[in-house]
């Protein structure tokens, strides 16, 4: 297998390149711990000294990505690629950026290029699987996830791609082997735990999903996506929605079953207790109005 070169390393024996490499490592460590402001300050100083250090530029792009400054990150990554067109980290980050920006064709070109240069990389196969899932091309996504696992059965990226395929393909897939292995090997990893939340929510186990998402938010309180997820699950599990349980549990199928049951009840009452029909109809009208009006109001109240 071709080794992926260390993006921060410069030519051996040049002390200034080593220093740039050390600064890159420091910035990377800060960004790994989400200390973005400190990393930015360090990168600003370092880039004054080494403006063409591809390693420092990639970490600067990573800081932009964490802050959601996608355009700035894209410009920086393009600059890295103008200095070093084969830079693997720059190509990989750019792939993730294009994928997140819904520029799927560009993302595919990048990941195919990476796979041409590193055909044994489970990480790149897994990335391509995520892209295919995003493009709603499930058979290819599954085949790529399997290929990633074949290359490296213990790769977290491959297991994540496989777990995502499980969640999408099987209703109520909270028994995904890939997800179980991920949790066993990375019990503290945020992304893994978010996958568990998604699997629980997909299996309509909203209370457990809400409890876990709340714990994750305590660990990462500045994550807007997580906050939105917790709010949505909180609304979904609020006590005032208990009367809507069949709809919450089975979605529109539950609503259809309720409609058929209500029709059958009314017709039966017309035969056996005509005096009760008016009251039951009134109750059903109030129930339907509540089911349409209250959930969006509750969501708005929780999001305020």
């Amino acid at each position: 297998m071709n080794e992926i070169p260390d993006p921060g390393a410069g030519p051996a024996g040049r002390p200034e390149a080593m220093t740039a490499h050390q600064l890159t490592e420091q910035a990377r460590a800060l960004l790994d711990r989400r200390r973005v402001q400190q990393a930015r300050a360090l990168l600003a100083r370092a880039l004054k000294e080494y403006p063409d250090s591809t390693g420092l530029l990639v970490e600067a792009a990573r800081a932009d990505l964490i802050d959601g400054a996608n355009d700035e990150a894209r410009d920086t990554l393009q600059r890295v690629l103008s200095l070093d067109p084969d830079h693997p980290d720059a190509r990989w980050f750019l792939f993730n950026l294009e994928l997140g920006s819904d520029r799927l064709e560009q993302a595919e070109a990048l990941v195919l290029g990476l796979l041409r240069d590193w055909p044994e990389s489970a990480q790149f196969y897994a990335g391509y699987a995520r892209l295919m899932l995003r493009a709603l091309m499930f058979p290819k996504a599954r085949a790529l996830a399997l290929e990633a696992l074949r290359r490296d059965p213990d790769s977290d990226d491959a297991l994540r791609a496989s777990a995502l395929c499980d969640i999408v393909e099987r209703p109520g897939a909270n028994d995904s082997v890939a997800l179980a292995r991920l949790v066993a090997s990375n019990p503290d990893d945020m992304y893994t735990m978010r996958l568990v939340v998604a699997a629980l929510a997909n299996a309509s186990r909203d209370r457990e999903a809400h409890a876990l998402a709340r714990e994750l938010l305590r660990l990462q309180p500045d994550d807007p996506g997580l906050l939105e997820l917790v709010r949505a699950l909180r609304a979904q599990t609020h006590w005032s929605l208990l009367p809507l349980w069949p709809m919450l549990r089975w979605g529109w199928y539950g609503s259809i079953a309720m409609w058929i049951a209500a029709l059958a009840l009314l017709q039966t009452l017309r035969q056996v207790a005509p005096g009760a029909v008016g009251w039951v109809t009134l109750f059903l009208v109030v129930y339907i109005a509540y089911s349409w009006v209250w959930p969006p109001l509750l969501r708005r109240w929780i999001n305020r």
Partner: peptide, 26 residues
Amino acid sequence: MASTNPDLLQPSLTSARVERSPYSQQ
């Protein structure tokens, strides 16, 4: 180790092939 399925590394997305999300169940 070569890919078991060489078609996997063929591009699948063109502007005409990018899938679009469905209308909601509601």
